[in-house]
């Protein structure tokens, strides 16, 4: 099945938002890449303080949550509302776990004296991952609003659920590039 040009999966509005967000994130990644190129020693030192295992845990939480959101959309399309809601709640739970783990990790960094304003590496790290975290939080709010409304008298349309899931996948996409820029090291 191929959809017409005017009806991308998830709706025109959310795709406009996602496209703009991707442009924004692309600018952020490019900036980080350029800083990394200009100051290799600083980035090397900074990355030594980051654990790639922690990075992998973040990735796994996000992609698993993404899978659950995609399953929820699929279930909702088949009008299996209960199943869709369970999947959405599971996706939200993993998203919350991401936020909790992120806050825990950030607290550790702050205790170690890594904070905004120390140098370009930590500025880039906190601003880059902070911008991503802001999107995760917005995504969680959107997912929750939709999840709690599935059983209302006037349930959300399929496109609304798909749109919210689409925003949630955007958070995955952004993380896929933040991850190698900060956590991968030789």
């Amino acid at each position: 099945m191929t959809r017409p040009l005017t009806e991308p999966p998830g709706g025109v509005l959310m795709w406009l938002i996602v496209a703009l967000e991707l442009v924004t994130f692309a600018m952020v990644f490019t900036l980080i890449g350029v800083l990394r190129m200009q100051q290799p020693a600083l980035f090397h030192a900074g990355q030594a303080a980051l654990s790639s295992t922690v990075g992998l845990v973040f990735t796994l939480l996000l992609i698993t949550s993404g899978l659950l959101a995609a399953e929820a959309v699929h279930a909702y399309r088949l009008t299996r509302t209960h199943r869709a809601q369970r999947f959405l709640f599971a996706a939200i739970a993993l998203g919350l776990a991401f936020v909790a783990f992120k806050l825990h990790d950030t607290a550790g960094h702050l205790a170690a004296g890594h904070r905004l304003g120390v140098d370009d590496f930590w500025d880039a790290y906190f601003l880059g991952t902070g911008f991503h975290l802001a999107h995760v939080l917005v995504g969680l709010v959107l997912l929750s609003v939709v999840a709690f409304r599935l059983h209302r008298a006037r349930p959300p349309e399929l496109e609304t659920v798909a749109a919210v899931a689409l925003f949630w996948h955007l958070c995955d996409l952004a993380w896929f590039f933040l991850f190698p820029l900060f956590f991968a090291r030789a």
């Binding site: 099945m1 191929t2 959809r3 017409p4 040009l5 991308p8 999966p9 998830g10 992609i63 993404g66 899978l67 959101a69 995609a70 959309v73 798909a162 899931a165 689409l166 996948h169 995955d172 996409l173 896929f176 590039f177 991850f179 190698p180 820029l181 991968a184």
Partner: peptide, 22 residues
């Protein structure tokens, strides 16, 4: 980074359902 690109494409095709899009 390259694998990140592959992962992004996978999420786009399957989770974002672009496989079925125009």
């Amino acid at each position: 980074v390259s694998l990140g690109g592959v992962k992004a494409l996978l999420v786009g095709f399957e989770f974002m359902e672009l496989r079925h899009a125009h």
